[in-house]
């Protein structure tokens, strides 16, 4: 954690203001590498002391808000949890670009409209059964555990913007929204898994996934959208039976897990 071993390193940032620039260009900055510094720290240092025009989103700075997803040395990730030194050691410098496949608003800020539209499309909210208990629905620790892969998703968009299918077809629901759909489909409290499975197995859904696994590589939370998509595919093939099983399960949602 000491501030010794200081050295100056090069940070290249893709700049683009559509109001002023014909096309994006790269701009180089020098920052002093302090031990423990993240890529977000470097961006912040550049913005506050060298060039206030450099524009990016950020908030929590500890990988929970999902604001600062960007492309760092060719990989989509969160700037706040990427150690600057690692990137320098590996690549000699840091090159930062906005998330690919999305319109650029300014510099590293992208327009996520399609990303949020797809999120809405899968109806991210729970569709509860009619019979609501006085206290909580009973869920086993195992049933909860099965959702962990999806419930910790921070909707940063790193997966979406690394997905080759999205690159070609913005109508694809996308790994983030499919992961959300997976979470609802698997939740024993959700009363509409068949309807959800019908939606996600349509023309823009799970069969579009080419299992290239880019989303897994990109996910800064270590989640596995591909596996969720695989699960949805399997369940979609027997969705009436799955719905039937869900109705059975929901008869006991108000009872202690044995």
């Amino acid at each position: 954690m000491a501030n010794n071993n200081r050295r100056t390193v090069t940070v290249r940032i893709q700049r683009f203001n559509p109001d002023a620039d014909a096309k994006p260009h790269m701009q180089e900055y020098q920052v002093e590498l302090v031990q423990g510094m993240t890529v977000l720290d470097a961006l912040h240092e550049i913005k506050t002391h060298q060039d206030g025009g450099v524009t990016f989103r950020r908030s929590c700075r500890h990988a929970i808000c999902g604001s600062c997803a960007m492309n760092i040395n060719g990989r989509n990730t969160l700037a706040c949890k990427t150690p600057l030194k690692n990137e320098i050691d590996k690549h000699g410098r840091v090159t930062i670009r906005p998330l690919p496949y999305l319109p650029i608003i300014k510099d590293l800020v992208v327009d996520r409209t399609t990303f949020w539209e797809e999120y809405l499309r899968v109806k991210p909210w729970l569709i509860p059964p009619d019979d609501i208990p006085e206290k909580e629905f009973r869920m086993s620790p195992e049933e909860v555990h099965a959702l962990n892969n999806a419930e910790t998703c921070i909707m940063c968009g790193a997966c979406y913007s690394s997905c080759a299918v999205i690159g070609l077809n913005k109508k694809y629901i996308g790994p983030h929204a499919l992961l959300k759909a997976f979470m609802r489909v698997l939740d024993p409290r959700d009363a509409a898994p068949a309807e959800r499975l019908a939606e996600v197995s349509g023309a823009d859904g799970v069969y579009r996934c080419h299992t290239i696994f880019n989303c897994i590589d990109a996910c800064p939370k270590g989640l596995n959208p591909t596996q969720a998509i695989e699960t949805l595919r399997k369940l979609a093939q027997k969705r009436q039976k799955y719905e039937q099983a869900r109705r059975e399960r929901q008869k006991h949602l108000n009872e202690p897990i044995p």
């Binding site: 509860p128 049933e143 909860v144």
Partner: peptide
């Protein structure tokens, strides 16, 4: 919980 929040159990 009824709105779908995933709590530990």
């Amino acid at each position: 919980e009824h709105m779908g929040c995933v709590f530990s159990r």
